[in-house]
Nucleic acid binder design. Structure first.
Lengths: 243, 243
DNA sequence: CCTTGATTGTTGTTGGACAACACTGTAAAA
DNA sequence: TTTTACAGTGTTGTCCAACAACAATCAAGG
């Protein structure tokens, strides 16, 4: 295995490699992995590094380790992507095998509400860059997105086109989103949103309220997403910690 | 620090210890931890073991590690308990500082539907033990619970009282639940359920469909929980993995 | 038949060493 | 004076080799 290019840590590369091997079928659910000593040699890393990777894979529910027995690929249906993994809505739709699209409803600077101020730790009088969009899959409305970015992160003259917001921030704001804290809620019928999403009156919406942070733990994006409940559901791997 | 009693692995004890120190305020958000060498000595474990603990804490978003700089307690609002952590509804309600209660609607053996068969990997003709309950917080209806357990796991003569289902299975079925795969969905008004939960007609419900597994990766419990959306929301820590 | 113990193979833990990285202060160069 | 270059220090990342703890198997003994 080639591990040249030291960009990321080795243990991260190992994690990717093993995940890829599972997806591609080289490693099958329920299968027992080689012992750590052997696997470490095969992968060309030390046992220590391999163990760090396996620990995380265990935490994520991908593998199961049993003291004195071995390490196994979990038999559970591995979700295409659980909600714990932060990906853009664009990628979510792509993973479903559909073509993502965007309809821009609004973009520009507005005054923040209290919620924005606290989530984004705004100075007084700082405004936010607001983007309202409809995200579509195969041209069908799927998600209503409200995104807010602190004013100071964005060059005044920049224009938001129909790109991924993650990419936009990476390019224009030189900010890399690293993680997010999210709340999952639900609402029933919403006058405006349900209409533009073409929902039935009885159909509720899944709401994702997220505060995104960059590599320095600074909040850089606060977003509220409304998902059509008949098209979307979220999956989670839940692990018991105290017995 | 006392680490006597080898029941759990040392790295798990370290994780607990650090989490406890954060909750109790000994470690404060944003604070820099001592270096791994010092911390390992303080805790009385090897640096390797400490690092395994820190890796998982990082994966969970509790700490943030920076190569060449140090390890820090994350400043994010640490959720009382994110949805990634599998706990019983009893404990969820307790964590809110309220008193959990249960109203048993039904318990007994029934024929499984297709959904149950596939989720619980049932043999043909095996029936399931069904429990229907209302869970209350301070006597207020909160969650409508449907739980199904494969027949062969439960001694025929056992009776389900108002205990925690996790405990019930531990005692009567000698089964320890280890993790679960969950889907988060939502539904609008439901004729029966909304009524017993005393929901308004416009108020939707958050639905958690979960398959629970024991330590040997066998599915042992399939449950569908309906949460009042005006009382509950789920939190998740989402981490970006590929940049 | 069943129990006990030795053997084997696994993951868990240890200690010590060096590598890679980030920051700081100092000295050299412009 | 200002800027650049570099050494020094402290951190996390990686490596190695060994032993401990645990689980399963098998053989010998009751």
């Amino acid at each position: 295995m080639s591990l040249d290019g030291y960009q990321r840590s080795r243990y991260l590369l190992i994690i990717e490699k093993i995940k890829k091997d599972i997806e591609s079928g080289i490693l099958e659910p329920g299968e027992k992995l080689p012992s750590e000593n052997k696997l470490a040699k095969d992968l060309g890393v030390s046992r220590t590094t391999l163990r760090e990777a396996l620990r995380i894979l265990e935490e994520e529910g991908i593998v199961i380790r049993k003291h004195g027995i071995g390490t196994f690929i979990n038999r559970k249906p591995i979700f295409s992507s659980g909600i714990e993994e932060l990906i853009s809505i664009t990628d979510m739709i792509k993973e479903e095998g559909k073509t993502p699209g965007t309809r821009l409803l609004y973009s520009g600077y507005v005054d923040p509400i209290e919620e924005d101020k606290s989530e984004l730790r705004l100075d007084d009088q700082e405004s936010v860059f607001l983007v309202k969009r409809i995200r579509t899959a195969d041209n069908e409305p799927m998600v209503y997105c409200i995104d807010k970015i602190p004013e100071h992160l964005i060059p005044k003259d920049s224009v938001f086109e129909n790109e991924s917001l993650f990419d936009f921030m990476d390019d224009k704001a030189a900010v890399t989103i690293s993680y997010a804290t999210a709340f999952i809620e639900t609402i029933g019928y919403h006058e405006e949103i349900s209409k533009v999403l073409q929902c039935e009156k009885e159909s509720p919406l899944l709401v994702l309220k997220q505060t995104h942070y960059d590599l320095h733990e600074n909040p850089v994006l606060y977003s509220i997403n409304f998902f059509r409940a008949d098209k979307f559901r979220f999956s989670v791997f839940r692990k018991r910690v105290k017995f």
